[in-house]
Write a protein that binds this DNA or RNA. Structure first.
Lengths: 147, 147
DNA sequence: TAATTTTATATCGCAAGCGATACAATCAAA
DNA sequence: TTTGATTGTATCGCTTGCGATATAAAATTA
């Protein structure tokens, strides 16, 4: 087939570009608080459930610990969270929010809506978003190396 | 609203994860030829139109030159392409494929179909892909800093 | 209990991404 | 034509992202 190689036909390129661009949209909102987008993701996980081992955070974000560990160390250095050796299982590192980390939740309260509004357009509306989510979730479930 | 912060409600996280996972799916196919996914994107651009200045490649991929320049230098070092100073405009660097770079097109011919097959699932089919593309294109157009 | 395997986390090395900045070539204007 | 602005590319510094590998604790098995 002609155009098989065309960039315009590539699903991955669209996902890659959309992901980069929307992450860039977060940047001005997060950098105000010295955060990066992956760090914001860690906060989302910890706001949902505080005091989790590294592995649980990594699994939730579908990242490897070799990505998450240095990220968490930087956040620890910023005073956003603490990393303490687990008491039952001494292999684990329990990651918990500091007051500063918790306080960011209120300060970042308007971020989801701001991003949401900046993305809304003809085909991306409250009505179509569930369809998009379902398709993206299908791709993710299809590809992620869940046992 | 409750759950506004939930990861499950985040469009960006889905895009980010889907993008990472599908890029990972390319990895075994590309690493066989010593290529990374962004390098493969450069090849797609050059196969479509050889001998382009750095800026045109960057614009096509919606990346900055500070990302593309080092990437191109690595590909030059691999003997995949050449970077030559432009003759009309001495500021430009014209990027052109070497025979090795061109030959990769045949060798990677089966990549799109392999990836396509690995993504196909309930909601991702030849019938639904155009819808997904249209939505992703909408997001990209909405967000990308095109003048 | 001793040996083996598994698990949780970390380290290393390298390739993106990207904000900030530099620099030289070109263009525009005075 | 000289000055000033713009353009095309590159450099620097930092944070991911990830394959490969290491290490120590725990679980399993012999």
């Amino acid at each position: 087939m002609d155009g098989c190689f065309s960039l315009d036909n590539q699903l991955c390129f669209r996902l890659y570009t959309a992901s980069r661009l929307i992450t860039q949209a977060y940047h001005p909102l997060l950098s105000e608080y010295g955060l990066t987008y992956p760090q914001y993701l860690v906060l989302l996980v910890l706001w949902e459930q505080d005091a989790q081992p590294v592995n649980d955070i990594a699994k939730r974000l579908m990242l490897e610990t070799n990505t998450v560990t240095p990220l968490l160390k930087r956040m620890e250095a910023e005073g956003i969270l603490t990393r303490t050796r687990g008491s039952q299982d001494a292999r684990q590192i329990i990651v918990a929010l500091t007051p500063k980390g918790r306080s960011l939740q209120e300060r970042l309260a308007e971020v989801p809506e701001t991003i949401g509004n900046s993305v809304l357009c003809k085909r991306i509306t409250p009505e179509t978003i569930p369809d998009l989510f379902a398709m993206l979730d299908d791709i993710i479930n299809q590809l992620h190396p869940c046992i």
